[in-house]
Structure formats: structure tokens, C-alpha cells
């Protein structure tokens, strides 16, 4: 299960996708005006996609057992909670 060797080709495809998405990030942020929050959300969305790709392919999470995925998701979940509740405070203060 764990000794899955990721071939060179997959790594190259992963890298190209990431570079492409970086270009998309720059271009959308610089030349497409969606209003401040619109651009923020779009950029964060692309960043999340990129992070998922790194997690999945470079970090082999796609080939891992359930436990390590749960650990990674736990980290992200509690982080969202932290951001969310603190943000609520400022929003309603």
C-alpha cells in the first residue's frame, strides 16, 4: 500500500499544472477585476486547488491510507474553525 512509487511522468504533469495555475493566479489578479473580495476569493480558491494538488501527488496523500488523510484534514479543519470564530468576533464587534 505504502510503497507506491510515483513515476516521473506524474511528477512532471503535477509540476506543469502547478506552474499553469500560478500563471492563472497572477493573470486573474492583475487583469481581471472582480472587486476586492471577488479577487481574494478567486485567488484563495486557486491556492486551495494548488495546495490540494501538492498534498495529493507530491505528498502522496492520494496513495496513502485513510489515517494520514484524516490527520491532514484535522489540521485544516481546526484551522478553519480558528479563522472562522475569530473572524465572527471582529465581524460583530
Amino acid at each position: 500500500m505504502s510503497h507506491h512509487i510515483v513515476p516521473l511522468k506524474t511528477n512532471i504533469i503535477t509540476l506543469s499544472t502547478l506552474v499553469f495555475l500560478t500563471a492563472v493566479t497572477v493573470l486573474t489578479a492583475k487583469y481581471i477585476h472582480l472587486g476586492e473580495n471577488g479577487n481574494l476569493v478567486l485567488a484563495m480558491f486557486i491556492a486551495c486547488v494548488k495546495a490540494t494538488i501538492v498534498f495529493g501527488w507530491f505528498m502522496h496523500l492520494k496513495y496513502e491510507g485513510i489515517m494520514n488523510r484524516v490527520i491532514a484534514l484535522c489540521g485544516l479543519g481546526f484551522l478553519l474553525l480558528f479563522v472562522g470564530l475569530s473572524y465572527l468576533d471582529l465581524f460583530f464587534r
Partner: peptide, 22 residues
């Protein structure tokens, strides 16, 4: 070490747009 290095990369993936672009 690879996992560590990728997490450093992921953090930069978020820092770059947040700091430089928007």
C-alpha cells in the same frame, strides 16, 4: 524531509497571492 519541503511550498502558495497580488 520531502513532506516537510512540500508543506513549506504549500505555505508559500498561499502567501504569494495574499501578500503580493491582492
Amino acid at each position: 524531509v520531502g513532506l516537510y519541503w512540500h508543506i513549506v511550498d504549500i505555505i508559500w502558495i498561499f502567501l504569494f497571492p495574499l501578500m503580493y497580488l491582492i
